[in-house]
């Protein structure tokens, strides 16, 4: 028999220390519920990002030219996400039910996916408005998102890192 990886041993020891496996109750088949919960967080987060982008005039996040369309889309996405989650089943039943760790993990996954998807979709929609990626100077941090879509910013970062590496 193969020896277990050290990382597996560490993880199992941590789980044992916190008695995580023993504490987790049987909450039924949570696959479908997890999927709906992920859609809830993802769609709602996309809506929040559109509202924030419209309020801030953030070019890299916004799907639309005018802020009003962004606000309407954002509100519809948030309400839609709530309706999809709560109208597809009774969310107060005992089983299936998501435990705290699952809620945390799926929330983080939904948020991260929403941010990546929003940046990618906005980059695709506004691909013809790109000024010039590599030679432009942009401010640090999120201020750059006001001026340029995300893909050229990443290209510029990549070329800077490559130059430093040479």
């Amino acid at each position: 028999m193969n020896a277990p990886y050290p990382s597996d041993m560490i993880i199992s020891k941590v789980l044992f220390f916190f008695k995580y496996e023993a504490a987790a109750p049987d909450v039924g088949d949570t696959k479908l519920l997890s999927l709906f919960f992920f859609v809830f967080v993802f769609l709602g987060s996309v809506g929040v990002l559109q509202i924030a982008a419209s309020y801030n005039r953030m070019k890299a996040l916004s799907f639309f030219r005018g802020p009003k369309t962004g606000y309407v889309f954002g509100v519809c996405a948030i309400l839609g996400s709530i309706l999809i989650f709560y109208l597809t089943g009774d969310r107060n039943v005992i089983a299936p039910r998501l435990e705290g760790g699952q809620v945390l993990g799926l929330t983080f996954l939904g948020l991260a996916t929403a941010v990546v998807a929003t940046l990618a979709i906005a980059s695709y929609i506004k691909r013809k408005q790109v000024v010039d990626g590599l030679d432009e100077q942009y401010p640090d941090g999120m201020e750059a998102l006001d001026q340029e879509v995300y893909l050229p910013l990443m290209k510029r970062l990549w070329s800077t890192l490559k130059k430093k590496g040479q």
């Binding site: 967080v41 709602g44 987060s45 929040v48 990002l49 509202i51 924030a52 982008a53 309020y55 801030n56 953030m58 996040l61 948030i78 929330t107 948020l111 999120m142």
Partner: peptide, 12 residues
């Protein structure tokens, strides 16, 4: 969580 996301991205 939505409020936190809005706060992170949504200040002028």
């Amino acid at each position: 969580t939505f409020i936190l996301l809005g706060l992170w991205f949504g200040a002028r």
